[in-house]
Design a protein around this nucleic acid. Sequence first.
DNA 1: CTTGTTTTTTGGAATGATTCCTATTACCAT
DNA 2: ATGGTAATAGGAATCATTCCAAAAAACAAG
Lengths: 149, 149
Amino acid sequence: MTKQRALILEELRKVRTHPTAADVYEAVRRCMPRISLGTVYRNLDLLSREGLVRRIDLGTGKKRYDAFVEDHSHIRCSSCGRVDDVPLHRADGLAAMYHGVERTTGYEVQSCEIDFVGLCPECRKDSAAASRERSSRKNDLAGPEKTRK
Amino acid sequence: MTKQRALILEELRKVRTHPTAADVYEAVRRCMPRISLGTVYRNLDLLSREGLVRRIDLGTGKKRYDAFVEDHSHIRCSSCGRVDDVPLHRADGLAAMYHGVERTTGYEVQSCEIDFVGLCPECRKDSAAASRERSSRKNDLAGPEKTRK
DNA sequence: CTTGTTTTTTGGAATGATTCCTATTACCAT
DNA sequence: ATGGTAATAGGAATCATTCCAAAAAACAAG
Ligand SMILES: [Mn+2]
Ligand SMILES: [Mn+2]
Ligand SMILES: [Zn+2]
Ligand SMILES: [Zn+2]
């Protein structure tokens, strides 16, 4: 456990925003300005292989990292891109689900990931406000959305 | 609906292997050798925006495409990489799940993707055979290990 | 059949997140 | 200190995907 690795883990444990590797790099840089992006990538990879960090790929181009490795799912806002936790109590239904999948596919199921997409509370307000506005003035055209790949 | 787009869709409908863009390019090339990879990407994107094709990102680097747009999930073999369908009957449990997520997160849920990882039937056999071989070799081989260092 | 207009395709270059490489540095036990 | 080992820094390479300008095709009258 090197200083760099410890700091990366520490910074990741401070937040629940599911930062990207670049985000972690920025954060860690404030304490250790000479750290390299490669080191951040390598250690995030190492930590995730050891189970101390979870790597999340929601198909938005950049992978995200999560120091909270307890069993949970994620939801991403299709408007602003933020990612929040979903405390899915897999305990009950998941065992049956696994079993059903094994029976129907013949696979031996090792893991399963459930990702949601939706509108976060903030963006719900915004879109509600926008639609209110739209219905009063009938000429509006906007294209938010920031995801690419 | 141009010739290229029609052929891309036709080829994609022939298979249930969830090919990558490069795979589709290869397949389509056999009938239309001068088609360009860019055209394949653009049309797959277009078709998926129109709902005729489903784009799948399982976090393995390359996106995959599926002409079967009925509601189903996927399972990927962690050993050989193949991707199969999982006929999850979302109808029953999913509505409750969505509702539960909306209540606990405050999000308005728009969609959800469930991806499984496991060992396909083929690889199960292989890994079973390999482990059988390993255990028998352990029994007859009393020789010293060639550890280095 | 022309001419002009719009849409699509090509082929190649650009992008950008991630990985790879290697000289240099930090670490550790003699 | 010295040597051996492990990790880092910095930058180059990779590779799926996207972007772009120019050529081709499709379309619409005249
Ligand atoms: Mn999380
Ligand atoms: Mn499928
Ligand atoms: Zn939002
Ligand atoms: Zn397999």
